[in-house]
Design a protein around this nucleic acid. Structure first.
Length: 421
RNA sequence: GUGGAUGUAGCUCAGUGGUAGAGCCCCGGAUUGUGGUUCCGGCUGUCGAGGGUUCAAAUCCCUUCAUCCACCCCA
């Protein structure tokens, strides 16, 4: 094994069913997002480390201990741990939001240096969408509706629950934060170690601690909802009303705080009970201050990110099959003599139809050739023996349905196949 | 990053110190122009890697790598 170079930890080769199921998820997101008028943006995989530490937050785990960082000659670069910071940077760089309200979506690899597990990889795939320039909760609601549409189309609606919360605007958030710090300081010694540390750097995060003792303390902690000012409260109320009008069920979870620092107002998470500790399949919210924080003109914005791998795993978990792609037609000569003719038939069929046509290679006896046709997954075998080659014909054998084999002139092939099914 | 479990054929696994196994898969034949069923025959391994103990190691010990589970974190 020493001269082999094995797969890097947390990385995967994707093929066959696993790849097919990831592609299904991505393509449903693509179709749905485009049907809502969102435009694809392709973002770089690497950015300056500073973009993430400023945009996502120095104190977040994603930035402080999970980034793949490399030092270039003059600056520190990192593989992106998420997509929002890049997207905002791109919008600022090209000034896309001047006199405009761009709605963008992206898909691609994200990287986090964590200990891998099923559903948690060091390179994983996210689909995300971001809408810039809209203040109201109408956009927030649309984002959620888009994702709910996708769950519908992927047949996972019943497996996924939506939780929402409001972090309020900056002023509300700060007042709540102060109240939290006061409260937790009073019982500091009863908190678990992690939470004590968070008290200094990110007190909000104590709220979603899983430590039992800490949770008891959190039960009585000041609620964000009591600190929302009028603007924040109106925003959140309208958000909930709009969701209700669409018939989207969302549970308010006052302890839902997002792991990344940039969120304000409405935040949301999609969870599933099927994936153990990797239960979160997506999340998002509003981040009105981020554009300004990253050096652009102030601009309200909201977005979501979905873990494509986890949605694909969830579908597998509940028994939804996604067959790998297979050829439609398998062309085989019965012996070497007819192979030239078989090649001609195949290329003619490719030109005159949109079938995926695979030609038998590697020789073998008729039995072996037929077996290869079967194994390829093709639904139709085009069989060419000496007789067919001499008469400019082919024999059509349906491999997956009960239908009698027929022999037709090559010129009739496309029409016969199209009416076959 | 912390704790734990696991790693033997392409796959699922049995094998706890004494000649590396089973089922499935694959290949060939029965059926010399027809797959998927059946029957017969056959192939398949650096026992994750490196080191140690022993007459002898898949088995015991150490190290290491990977996967999985929980924590952590998030998607």
């Amino acid at each position: 094994m020493s001269d082999r170079s094995p797969l890097v930890r947390g990385m995967r080769d994707l093929y066959a069913e696993e790849l097919a199921s990831i592609r299904i998820v991505e393509s449903v997101f693509r179709d749905t997002l485009e049907s809502y008028g969102y435009e694809l943006i392709r973002l770089p995989t690497m950015e300056r480390t500073a973009l993430f530490s400023r945009g996502i937050g120095e104190s977040t785990d994603a930035v402080s201990k999970e980034m793949f960082t490399l030092d270039d000659e003059t600056e520190s670069l990192s593989l992106r741990p998420e997509g929002t910071a890049s997207c905002v940077r791109a919008v600022i760089d090209a000034n896309l939001y001047r006199g405009n309200q761009p709605k963008l979506w992206y898909v691609g690899s994200m990287f986090r240096h964590e200990r891998p597990q099923l559903g948690r990889y060091r390179e994983f795939f996210q689909v995300g969408a971001e809408a810039f320039g809209f203040n109201g909760p109408d956009v927030d609601t649309e984002l959620i509706r888009i994702v709910q549409d996708v769950w519908e189309r992927l047949d996972v609606t019943n497996e996924i629950t939506l939780e929402i919360n409001s972090l309020g605007n900056t002023a509300s958030r700060l007042r709540h934060r102060d109240a939290l710090v006061d409260y937790f300081e009073g019982c500091r010694d009863d908190l678990d170690e992690d939470s004590q540390r968070r008290l200094e750097i990110n007190p909000l995060r104590i709220l979603d601690s899983k430590n039992e003792r800490t949770q008891e303390i959190v039960e009585r902690a000041p609620n964000m909802s009591d600190y929302l000012d009028d603007e924040s409260r109106r925003h959140f109320d309208e958000f909930q009303e709009r969701l209700a009008r669409l018939g989207i069920h969302a549970t308010v979870n006052h302890r839902l705080v997002r792991g990344l620092d940039y969120y304000t107002h409405g935040v949301f998470e999609w969870n599933t009970a099927r994936l153990g500790a990797q239960k979160q399949v997506g999340g998002g919210g509003r981040y009105d201050g981020l554009c300004e924080l990253l050096g652009g003109a102030p601009c309200p914005a909201a977005g979501f990110a979905i873990g494509v791998d986890r949605v694909a795993l969830l579908r597998k978990e509940i028994g939804l099959k996604t067959p790998a792609s297979t050829p439609d037609v398998y062309v085989l000569a019965l012996s070497d003599e007819e192979e030239e003719y078989a090649l001609q038939v195949a290329s003619q069929l490719r030109e005159t139809s949109s079938f995926g046509v695979r030609v038998h290679q590697g020789g073998g006896k008729a039995k072996a050739r037929m077996r290869a046709a079967d194994r390829s997954g093709a639904s139709i075998a085009l069989i060419i023996g000496a007789q067919e080659a001499a008469d400019n014909q082919v024999s059509i054998k349906w491999l997956r349905i009960n239908r009698e084999q027929v022999t037709v002139p090559v010129t009739d092939l496309p029409t016969t196949l199209l009416t076959s099914n």
